[in-house]
């Protein structure tokens, strides 16, 4: 099979297995690879599960739809969707496709300096992001961005709506 098709096939296989065997989320979604960069944005689709040796904890501040800020402590290497879910953040509809780049409900808005530090998003992430409601220049999909130590204290904003650009 050509390299270019590995992405859909392997991603689907993974998510297919996840869905159909009802494997717990925690066991299958944290495939972000801790890296030395200031911020890793390794799309889970391309990464291999790597045993997490990093035990360091960092704080992420989620600015919720009602304007309140919820700080959460989390392990380095986790992605911003899993962190929200594991900490029971009450965001309606967040992460509908469970981090498989098929929905854009995990849309988050970053502060410019932080956004600039992030690794370039993949075409696949941008494709999905294009459909997010209230898209900004510093938007990313939470399930594709993993936190690193350098990001301690990072603030991300949950956009107000979750409508879809396919209908505007």
């Amino acid at each position: 099979m050509a390299a270019s098709v590995l992405f859909p096939a392997s991603a689907r296989l993974l998510s297919g297995l996840r869905h159909f065997s009802r494997v717990s989320r925690a066991a299958t979604t944290s495939l972000c690879r801790p890296q030395n960069h200031s911020l890793s944005t390794t799309a889970r689709h391309f990464s291999q599960p790597t045993p997490r040796t990093e035990k360091a904890k960092v704080t992420v501040n989620y600015v919720m739809r009602d304007g309140s800020t919820v700080p959460v402590r989390t392990k380095v290497g986790e992605n911003l969707l899993d962190i929200a879910i594991e900490n029971d953040l009450d965001i309606d509809g967040f992460g509908a496709c469970e981090g498989t780049l098929a929905c854009s409900t995990c849309h988050l808005i970053f502060e410019q300096p932080i956004y600039d530090q992030l690794e370039e998003p993949t075409d696949e992430e941008l494709d999905m992001l294009d459909l997010a409601f209230g898209l900004t220049d510093t938007s990313r999909l939470g399930c594709q961005v993993c936190v690193t130590k350098a990001l301690d204290g990072l603030t991300v904003k949950v956009p107000e709506g979750v409508a879809d650009a396919r209908d505007v």
Binding site: R12, S15, R18, H19, R22, C97, T100, L101, A102, C103
Partner: peptide
């Protein structure tokens, strides 16, 4: 059928 990831909403 080749988009199983979309069907993850079934869990919700």
């Amino acid at each position: 059928p080749d988009h199983p990831e979309v069907k993850n909403v079934i869990n919700t």
